[in-house]
């Protein structure tokens, strides 16, 4: 179901303990701290492995997340905005990660640019409630999606490289 390298990536993302969603005021803060700790470790791992591919931050309540992800293809860096909300039923149901700027450019998306995940993602997530968090959703959901879709979209000419004008 999961290949070796993904398995290795996964095993390096700290697992979470608190099963709490955003409706549970106090426990949610605990969960959110675990989310951040896990994400910080994951991003740090990525940097150490020279495989840094996203940044995320959230609103104060930790219910809305946004940031950037990037994908290197033929030595060019393609960058996309990422966003998602934490559903009330989290962590039983995974967040629906969206890349709004690609909405309508690929059939492997639902409305609003929510990425269409493989058949394996949801069962895998369900088996690992509440241990999987946002980092796992990125690693198992968005990561593989980018790896498959972005080269395809580039080859079709749907997206093209933009010189870094900003920053």
């Amino acid at each position: 179901m999961v290949d070796e390298s993904t398995r290795k990536t996964l095993s390096n993302i700290p697992l979470l303990k608190t099963k709490a969603g955003p409706r549970e005021k106090e426990l949610w803060v605990q969960r959110l701290k675990e989310e951040y700790q896990s994400l910080i470790k994951y991003v740090q791992n990525n940097k150490d492995a020279d495989n840094d591919w996203f940044r995320l931050e959230s609103n104060k309540e930790g219910t809305k997340w946004f940031g950037k992800c990037w994908f290197i293809h033929e030595l060019l860096k393609y960058e996309f905005d990422v966003e998602f909300e934490i559903p009330v039923t989290y962590p039983t149901t995974a967040p629906e990660i969206a890349l709004p700027e690609l909405d309508g450019k690929t059939a492997k998306m639902y409305r609003g640019g929510k990425i269409c995940l493989s058949d394996h993602f949801k069962p895998l997530w369900a088996r690992n409630v509440p241990k999987f968090g946002i980092g796992h959703a990125m690693a198992l959901g968005l990561g593989p999606w980018l790896a498959v879709e972005i080269p395809d979209l580039i080859s079709k000419g749907v997206i093209s490289y933009k010189e870094k004008s900003e920053k």
Binding site: L32, R55, N128
Partner: peptide, 26 residues
């Protein structure tokens, strides 16, 4: 039967704000 894991996220005394700042600073 839990997936093998390196470590569970530990309870620390770091506040959420500090974590958010740390994340932003990476």
């Amino acid at each position: 039967a839990v997936e093998e894991c390196e470590e569970a996220t530990a309870d620390t005394d770091v506040s959420l704000d500090e974590l958010m700042a740390q994340m932003k600073a990476i």
